[in-house]
Each structure stands twice: as structure tokens, then as C-alpha cells.
């Protein structure tokens, strides 16, 4: 605890002692004391602001250096052309808590400083622009900058992707609407057909053109196409390819002429036979003697021969 605090407490104590019953009674009769909990008011804290001292200190330690050593610029934010001057109080309130506005305000201040200082530097013959062939160590390493670039690109990509997904979702919504319209249209056509049949039966009309199913107008044909194009969704399609959908499944795993032909790449009878022969030659297995050249005929031909013999 600092000294002034202690002093204040001592003062309070002495004050308490002075509050005798008589005094309190007197105060009550005057109407200064109200019934209820009376709390001693605390003295308001005084904040030091020694303006003269500050000014003296500033003159003491200020260095008279050339501007070239200091490079300081004092200026407000650069004005955007075409913007009216907003009221300062009103502006300040949002600025602090709105990140974008605040950063923009600071950015514009920096911009104003740059626009102010660069001509001054050029007047002093100080290069402000780095030549293309001047290489030196940077504040951030190349590795770090690469990471930043990658992150930026990734962010951009994800944004694009999300936008695409959004569009697709909207399209799908639209597709549903189209489908509903198609259903309504079909019902209407059915109704029309029934009506025209009725009319024909009663002899109101002798035209049988409606039976040929001519579409009355080509207006809806485009929408129909769109609906047809949409078809089942991607997930359903993938599942269909995996588990099968529609058509005949029976016997789909049984070998056929076609499947054998498809398999030829992997297995050929000819090659197999030659392999077997080679094997036998090498390891001295049983070898056919005599008319080894004569080939066995195909099954169909053999059966024909059999029937002829009979």
C-alpha cells in the first residue's frame, strides 16, 4: 500500500471518531441522514496530468535531427475522391468496433503518409524504388511467403467451390419445380384426351387427330428435356453401378462366348497348350506319339460327324 492510501485511511478513521451520536442526531434532525444503508462516499481518484511537466520533458529530450534521419509524417487519412466528410464522432464509434472500417482508416492514413513522404525523399535524392536486380534478405523468408501464397490460393479455390455448389443447389431446386410442372402437364394432357374422346363419342367433333398424340405446343419441350437430363442424382448413379439397377440379373455371372472373348487377353487356349508342351519337353513328361499334328475338331463339327456315322 502506498503512502497516500495510508494517509487517506487515517483520515477516515479520525473522521469516524468525530461522528459522535450527538452530531448524528443533529444531522438527522436537519434531514441530512435518510433511513437506510448509509455508505461513506469515496473520494474521486485524481488522475495525474502534468501538462507543463510533459512539455518541459519534451523540449529536454527532443533531438534536432534532419528529417532524413527521422522520416516522420503526421497526417490524417487520405481522402477518397467523391466521399463527403463524415462527422468525426459518429465515424469514430463504428470505426473502432468495425474491423473493416478501422483497418481502412489506418490504411488510408499510411497511404497519405506515403504520398506525402515519397516526393520529399525523391527531392533528397534518396531512392524509393528497389531495382529489379537488387536482391537482399527480406523480413519474411521465401518459404513463409510461399506458404502465404498457397493459403491464398487454397482460400480462393474453396470459395469458388462453395459458389459452384451453391449454384448447383439452386439448379436442383429449379429442377424439382420443373418436375412438378411436368406432372401437372401430364395430368392435364390425360384430362384433355379423356375430354376429347368424350366429345368424339357424343359426336361434337369428328376430328381424330388427338389420338396421334400431337403435342399442342413446343413451349414445354425444352423443360422436358431439362428434366430428362437431370435424371437420378450422382449418389444414386454410383450405387446403381455398384449394386446394379434394372434389367435382368439372372445368369449374369455365367460364362458366355462374349465373356470368354473378353477374357482372351488374360487366357488363351493356344498359348496354354504350347506352354504345356514346352513343359513336357523340358521335364520329360508323357509325349504324344504319331499324328500329333491332327487337331481335335470343334464340338459342333464332332457332333455332326457322329450323326453322319450313324
Amino acid at each position: 500500500m502506498t503512502d497516500p492510501d495510508i494517509a487517506a485511511e487515517m483520515e477516515e478513521d479520525s473522521f469516524d471518531d468525530l461522528d459522535s451520536d450527538e452530531e448524528l442526531q443533529a444531522a438527522f434532525s436537519r434531514g441530512d441522514l435518510k433511513p437506510g444503508l448509509n455508505i461513506e462516499a469515496r473520494a474521486k481518484r485524481v488522475y495525474i496530468n502534468d501538462e507543463q511537466g510533459l512539455k518541459d520533458r519534451l523540449t529536454d529530450f527532443k533531438k534536432d535531427l534532419a528529417w532524413l534521419e527521422r522520416l516522420d509524417v503526421t497526417c490524417g487519412p487520405a481522402r477518397v475522391p467523391g466521399e463527403t466528410d463524415p462527422k468525426p464522432d459518429e465515424e469514430n464509434k463504428d470505426e473502432v468496433h468495425d474491423d473493416f472500417k478501422r483497418e481502412l482508416r489506418i490504411y488510408r492514413q499510411a497511404q497519405a503518409a506515403v504520398l506525402d513522404a515519397l516526393p520529399k525523399l525523391q527531392a533528397l535524392n534518396i531512392p524509393t524504388k528497389r531495382p529489379e536486380d537488387f536482391f537482399a534478405e527480406m523480413a519474411k523468408s521465401d518459404d513463409h511467403m510461399r506458404k502465404i501464397r498457397e493459403k491464398l490460393i487454397a482460400k480462393q479455390l474453396s470459395m469458388e467451390r462453395s459458389e459452384k455448389a451453391k449454384k448447383l443447389r439452386e439448379l436442383r431446386k429449379f429442377g424439382k419445380k420443373v418436375q412438378q410442372e411436368v406432372l401437372v402437364k401430364r395430368q392435364k394432357e390425360k384430362k384433355d384426351l379423356a375430354e376429347s374422346v368424350k366429345k368424339f363419342k357424343k359426336g361434337h367433333s369428328k376430328d381424330l387427330g388427338f389420338l396421334e398424340g400431337k403435342p399442342k405446343g413446343g413451349a414445354n419441350s425444352k423443360q422436358d428435356k431439362a428434366a430428362a437430363k437431370l435424371g437420378p442424382n450422382m449418389k444414386r448413379k454410383a450405387k446403381n453401378t455398384k449394386f446394379g439397377y434394372g434389367g435382368k440379373h439372372k445368369g449374369s455371372k455365367v460364362n458366355s462366348k462374349q465373356s470368354a472373348r473378353d477374357d482372351e487377353d488374360h487366357f488363351s487356349i493356344k498359348r496354354n497348350r504350347s506352354d504345356v508342351a514346352k513343359h513336357q519337353k523340358q521335364f520329360g513328361g508323357k509325349q504324344r506319339k504319331g499324328n500329333t499334328k491332327q487337331k481335335r475338331l470343334g464340338k459342333g463339327k464332332r457332333q455332326k460327324l457322329k450323326s453322319r456315322k450313324k
Binding site: N49, E51, L54, K55, L58, R70, L71, D72, V73, T74, C75, G76, Q109, A110, A112, A113, V114, A117, R130, A136, E137, M138, A139, K140, M145
Partner: peptide
């Protein structure tokens, strides 16, 4: 990114000149 050790410009708000502190 900037050069390591390049001399910065210092930009101050006009409010810096308004009060002694």
C-alpha cells in the same frame, strides 16, 4: 513483405499533436 532492415516511414495521427502527453 519488405527488405530486412529497410528504413521505415513513420506515419502519425494528427491527434498526436493535440495533447502534450
Amino acid at each position: 513483405n519488405c527488405l530486412k532492415g529497410s528504413r521505415p516511414l513513420l506515419s502519425f495521427d494528427p491527434q498526436f499533436d493535440e495533447s502534450p502527453h
